[in-house]
Design a binder for these strands. Structure first.
Length: 464
DNA sequence: TGAAATGTTGGGGCG
DNA sequence: ACGCCCCAACATTTC
């Protein structure tokens, strides 16, 4: 006898059917499960109509729709404010329970709390589960019983805790999809983002859990070399799975199981990146003030120098520093930026242009397909030296030497800054030097700042 | 997952 | 043969 006659699984950023804890629980404990996605009008306000994340989500929904249709079931997609819409659905479909996955963003936590108390008032059971991380913020604690503020000891403890009981932590939650509601029980047409005027956007990876699994499989050929190739933007060394982690089309448990199944030097380093992801989610959950300001509050007093023109030049990839411009143009054109270049571009905005990291954070948030508040915020605070585990403020990257080290023959620069295509691999990193200037640069701009000077200014700003 | 400045060492040219 | 200088290579310190 199932505990619930009919339940809803409220999908948000867990857009898959496999290894899904909330769906698993719903299917185990109910006779009938109705999967629901709400196009949240609270979130959509102010988004540009060619939003990449919207396009990705819609693609995931399309896949889920057809996967469920094949099983004689359906996904219900409705539009509105979750706090209004979900209770209506609960009534309309006589639902006894609602299941969903934890979300650690401050606004989502508020939303989910409000939802649970609204459902409680209606006498409806609601329950949420860990899904997007292996360990939640209070599952990995330091000796003092407090959450970590530094990555390395956190990561050590993370691995130790995992290996203490790997089978349980990496367990696959395989939902019994036979419990999914029969399509004829569900009425009305599904809402689409297109109804709200959203249009096509370019995606550097296709949406959906099938694609995610295919990418993971393909990555198994390359992951052994990940530690050697991952820093070079012209090499296809990284997994490109970030959007799939973002929207839960890949189970983190599956990703970590994959690491242990393909164990190598490369896998170890990649696993570390997954731990970074959880580290920043933990930080956001435990120290939510980072959303609005520096992890270390004294750094909110820094006197950044806002400059509209320079900020625009940075955004558009017109700084005169080829590697920075290539990075920004990659972001603008594809919605992706190689991780090494995220650091270089962020350092340039904060330590060369002396512009507040929050401006950069906001721009990345608008552009990145894989954008996630926790990781983006953590990365920016790391670069700006305002965060936990930040680079000391005097560690400033030199955009030219970074370019020479990580794009030695200029292949990446040539791809995104075609004005410089004709330059030799020696000259392409810094085409402005007296006597080195060559023709065929089109209207590639002069450098908007002098790195040597700006570096000293940045250090001086922090000293105060 | 820094880079520049400064210090040290040792080989080789040269008077 | 010797002392001196130059400087590359490497190491350490500093921001």
């Amino acid at each position: 006898m199932a505990q619930f006659e009919r339940s809803i699984v409220w999908l948000r950023r867990d857009l898959r059917l496999s290894d899904h804890r909330a769906l698993f629980e719903a299917c185990s404990r109910s006779n009938e499960v109705l999967p629901v996605f709400i196009i949240d009008e609270n979130i959509l306000e102010g988004l540009k109509k060619d939003n990449r994340q919207v396009e990705f989500i819609q693609g995931c929904l399309n896949e889920l729709e057809s996967e469920l249709a094949e099983r004689g079931s359906r996904l219900l997609v409705v539009r509105g404010k979750p706090l209004e819409v979900l209770p209506q659905l609960v009534k309309k479909y006589s639902v006894n329970a609602v299941f969903f996955s934890h979300d650690y963003e401050p606004s989502a936590k508020l939303r989910d709390q409000a939802m649970m108390s609204a459902l409680k008032k209606m006498g409806v059971h609601s329950e949420s589960f860990k899904d997007q991380v292996i360990f939640e913020s209070r599952e990995i604690l330091g000796g003092s019983g407090e959450p970590y503020k530094v990555f390395t000891p956190y990561a050590r403890n993370w691995v130790k805790t995992l290996e203490l009981n790997k089978a349980e932590h990496l367990r696959e939650y395989k939902p019994n999809l036979k419990k999914l509601i029969s399509a004829d029980q569900v009425s009305g047409k599904n809402a689409h983002f297109a109804d709200l005027g959203f249009t096509k956007a370019f995606l550097f990876v296709e949406p959906g859990e099938k694609v995610a699994r295919k990418l993971l499989k393909g990555f198994s050929e390359r992951i052994g070399k990940y530690h050697e190739t991952r820093d070079f933007p012209a090499i296809n060394g990284t997994s490109k799975l970030s959007p799939h982690f973002r929207f839960g089309t890949l189970s983190p448990r599956e990703a970590v199981r994959f690491c242990y199944d393909h164990f190598s030097a490369g896998t170890k380093v990649w696993l570390n990146e997954l731990i970074w992801r959880e580290f920043y989610q933990m930080i956001l959950d435990q120290y939510p003030h980072v959303e609005k300001g520096a992890f270390k509050p004294p750094y909110d007093e820094l006197k950044w120098s806002w400059n509209e023109k320079k900020f625009q030049a940075w955004c558009e990839g017109r700084t005169g520093y080829p590697i920075v411009d290539a990075a920004m143009r990659q972001l603008n054109e594809t919605g992706f930026m190689h991780n090494r270049l995220r650091m270089v571009a962020a350092m340039f905005l904060t330590k060369d242009l002396l512009i507040n990291w929050q401006e950069g954070e906001k721009y990345f948030a608008e552009q990145l397909l894989d954008h996630e508040l926790a990781a983006n915020n953590g990365g920016w605070q790391w670069s700006a030296s305002t965060g936990c585990d930040a680079q000391p403020y005097f560690r400033v990257m030199n955009p030219i030497s970074q370019s020479e080290r990580f794009d030695a023959d200029g292949e990446f620069i040539r791809k995104y800054v075609p004005e410089l295509k004709g330059l030799s691999s020696k000259r392409i990193h810094w085409p402005h030097e007296e006597g080195l200037f060559s023709t065929g640069m089109g209207d590639y701009p002069e450098p908007i700042v002098d790195h040597k000077e700006q570096r000293l200014k940045a250090i001086a700003m922090f000293k105060k």
